[in-house]
Design a protein around this nucleic acid. Structure first.
Length: 222
DNA sequence: CGAGTTTGACCAGCGC
DNA sequence: GCGCTGGTCAAACTCG
C-alpha cells in the first residue's frame, strides 16, 4: 500500500519534525479515511470511524446526496480508502451530530463556497496544509469547552478561511474546516497543492503529510 | 519594524 | 424587540 501524507513533506519545520506523521495504514494517528459531501458544498472528513456494517451503510445512504458523496469517496481517494464505504457510515452519524448543528448562520449566507471539514486525531491543533494562515479570531462556542480559532489565508486576494477546534466529545481529535477555494498555488516550496482544498484527494501519486506548522508557532499557545 | 497573535467589541441571524 | 450565539474586526500586544 502506498503511503499517503497530509501536507507537504518538503515543507516541514525542523523544530517540529517529531510530529511528522506518515499514513501508511489506517491505524496511523492521522488517517484520511472519510469525507462527505453535504448539500453540494460541504465535505466532511472523519479519520477514525472504521467499523460499521455494510447494511447500515446502505440504509444511511438513502439520501441521494449522501449516496453521491459515498461514490465520490471511492473515486477520489482511490486506493487510499478502499474501506471508505465502511468508514462513512459512522461519518453520517457524525455529520448529523456535528455538522448540521454547527453549520453557522454566517456560512449559510456564503453561497457556493466549498467547505471541507476534517476530523483528525492529533495533539496539534494547527496542521500545516502548505498554505500560510493568519489567525484573526478566537471564540468560545456553546456546548464545547474548547475555543474555536479562526484563520484566513494570508495570500493577498485569497479569501479562504479555516476554523480549528478540538472535538468537544473527544479532545484527542481536531476539527478543521476550510471555507472557500484558494485562488493561488501553495506558498510551500514544492507546489504539490492546487487551488482547491479538495485537491489533496486527487494526488494519487503524491505524498502528503501531517506535521506542525512551519509558521505561526505561537498560535499553538492559545 | 513588520508580521502575526490576542482579545474585547461589534455585527448579524435566529428563536422566543 | 430582546437575548443568545457565531463570526469578524481592529487596536494593542508580542516576537523575531
Amino acid at each position: 500500500m502506498e503511503d499517503y501524507y497530509f501536507g507537504n513533506p518538503n515543507y516541514s519545520n525542523p523544530n517540529c519534525a517529531h510530529s511528522f506523521v506518515t499514513m501508511a495504514t489506517p491505524t496511523s494517528d492521522f488517517m484520511l479515511s472519510d469525507y462527505l459531501l453535504l448539500d453540494d458544498d460541504v465535505i466532511m472528513i472523519d479519520n477514525h470511524h472504521q467499523h460499521q456494517d455494510q447494511e447500515s451503510w446502505s440504509q444511511s445512504t438513502e439520501s441521494s446526496s449522501l449516496a453521491a458523496a459515498s461514490s465520490n469517496v471511492n473515486h477520489e481517494f482511490g486506493g487510499a480508502t478502499t474501506s471508505s464505504h465502511n468508514n462513512n457510515m459512522q461519518l453520517l452519524d457524525f455529520v448529523d451530530r456535528k455538522c448540521k448543528n454547527n453549520v453557522s448562520k454566517r456560512n449559510k449566507q456564503v453561497e457556493a463556497r466549498q467547505r471541507v471539514v476534517f476530523r483528525t486525531r492529533s495533539e496539534l491543533e494547527v496542521m500545516d496544509d502548505g498554505f500560510k494562515w493568519r489567525k484573526y479570531g478566537k471564540k468560545s462556542v456553546k456546548n464545547s469547552p474548547n475555543p474555536r480559532n479562526y484563520y484566513k489565508c494570508s495570500s493577498v486576494g485569497c479569501g479562504v478561511k479555516k476554523r480549528v477546534e478540538r472535538d468537544a466529545e473527544d479532545r484527542s481529535y481536531v476539527l478543521t474546516s476550510y471555507d472557500g477555494v484558494h485562488n493561488h498555488q501553495s506558498p510551500s516550496s514544492n507546489s504539490y497543492y492546487t487551488t482547491s482544498p479538495f485537491s489533496i484527494f486527487h494526488s494519487n501519486d503524491i505524498n502528503w503529510s501531517l506535521h506542525a506548522p512551519a509558521v505561526n508557532s505561537s498560535s499553538s499557545n492559545s
